[in-house]
Design a protein around this nucleic acid. Sequence first.
DNA 1: GTTTACGCATCCCCG
DNA 2: ATGCGTAAAC
Length: 711
Amino acid sequence: MTTRPIDYKSELNEAQYQAVTAGEGPILVVAGAGSGKTRTLVYKVAWLVEQGVEPSSILLLTFTRRASSEMLARATAMLDNRCQQVVGGTFHWLANRVLQRYGKLVLLGSAFSIIDRSDAEDVLNFLVGKLGFRDQNRRFPKKGTISDIFSKSVNRDETLEQVLAREYEQFLQYHLELLELREHYDLYKRQHQMLDFDDLLVYLSRLLREHQEVCLQLSTSYSYVLVDEYQDTNRLQADIVQALTKYHQNVMVVGDDSQSIYSFRGAHFRNILDFPKLFPQSRVFKLEENYRSPQPVLNLANGIIQSSREKYTKCLYTRKPRGQRPWLLRPGDESRQSEYICEKIKELKHKGIPLKEMAVLFRASYHSFDLEVALTRLGFPFIKYGGFKFIESAHVKDVLAHLRALKNPPDRISWNRLLLLVNQVGSKRSQEILQHLGQSRKGLERLASYASKLPAKHGLHRLVQLFEELSKPGITVSQQVRAVRDYYEPLLVAKYDDYPKRLRELDYLQDWTLKYDRLEEFLADVALEPPSSNVPENHPDTARDHLVLSTIHSAKGLEWRAVFLISAVEGRLPPSQAYADEEVLEEERRLLYVAVTRAKEFLYLCCPRRIYDRRTGFHYAPLSLFLRELPGGDYFQDGGEVEVHPLAVSEAELEEARGFSPGDVVRHPFFGRGRVIAVPDRVKVQIKFEDGRTRLLHVGFAPLERVASIY
DNA sequence: GTTTACGCATCCCCG
DNA sequence: ATGCGTAAAC
């Protein structure tokens, strides 16, 4: 590799240059969308290495592992191979690494397995059943909700009661049950040597706090810490950063408070606002020059974010000469929207823009269903990011369950899963077998003798044979997966009609294992960072020119020449529930900001007039609040055959809208003014009043007066 | 007493 | 497409 000297001064703009060459001490880089945030980090890595900082003592923490490996690859290409020695990964990855080594100090044993969200939910479900909470109350929260509640409590450092009061008022009545459940959950994890995602951060944080010798050791071995996407970190992660840099204060965090979109995971943009308080010596650099989008797109982005209350004020600008104004389109309904997008894509393709330079973005995964059908019919290849993941599909989890049971015999969740696959074994027999097995590694022999008494003996004997095969000395990870597949595939074929597709996906899983020597490494990686797409990396379509469909969340940090945002209407973006909480609503605004700032040349906002909602059926959908609220200005251009004026509403639509919609402001003679949060059915409205309370009223009886409609 | 088959509701975003 | 509750089949 040839090394040319890097001319930092000319290759970076002034603000970037200042941040990169700023030397020691805490640094905050507030980087607007498209302002060269990644570029700044990459140059910083190179600069540090050039300054003689030992590469392996630089720690780069990113949102995904892919992000860090891409950045390090860029730094390597720019400077030299030393940059490959830089340590890069996610917070969870770091926690796993540190706990592997020092875990004994804060955990019961040194070996543990990482459980992903669905495993955690399985454990919770099991415990809810065991404690009998389900039978007593029909309205007890579902496993996914429980998992959310526990997680928010941990990540925001709040008590269960606080979380319930803020966001889950309807479950406050189960406060004591949930507390008890959490005790059992924690105990269960300890007994089975499991750590969930939150535990990784909790234990790392505790380790650093309670063991100063480890803290000093790590602080010494990582003499410079870089953190990307700081706006999406939470309290625990901030504590970890602070502890890691306690002895040298060499830390640079980069982020954009306007792009903080992960509060549901406990992140809070307050984290980035408070950085200067956490590190009083810090210097702040702002990157405002945008290198991605044309000015008209930036004007829209600035307009959208202008009315958000708390932020680092920044204004995006570009020196690019000119550009297209965004289009605002109002197709009649979602199928018209799909047709329209297909036409536009065809048109852009004729202009010479490859499919992979175009993306369709949406708030929620299911919003693209209609479009997916249309694209498939027309033969446009696409890959979808976000939503259900490859790794979460039943057949992949089945195969992994065998490997995990092998590696960690106390893992009853996996054992249960694989036993249920055996014919004649249901949940009852599975539990019995597990009782008999105990937790020892000798369990296999016992299973063999025990099985002969059961109706399922043939299936169970095959299972025993499989585990003998898997335990052979010298077997490679790939051979182990092969053995599990030989055993499992006949079951899969019998179970699923769409087995060809699933079999192909298992091929990808097999390929993925080739780079691993040890099974535990593979399993840890699978748990820590599953492939981000619902399609594996080595899917044949990735080689072809393909369109990208993505949730806005998964589009963070990416860019395309043409971006389509679909269903930017009330009920979708923002979803109607968002009106219940001001902060949640503000995050929706930032989500729209993230979406529009992905566009390098062309931006289309699609707002169908009618959408389908399973509660209310088909109904008219006003433009998204954030588009209606735009401060004066000429943001959009004519969309041609589809009507574009944002505020034009026909008589028929007004007629249809006589009912209340989320976002409407109403007045009640007794309760005063309020805002409609939800309309559960035609006769009931849920309203948040100015006294802060939420009430459910009957439209037919409550004397409600409409003050302002969202139309 | 267990397993399995079938119909029904549900589904935002994620390491 | 999965996750549940209920009823039929072993």
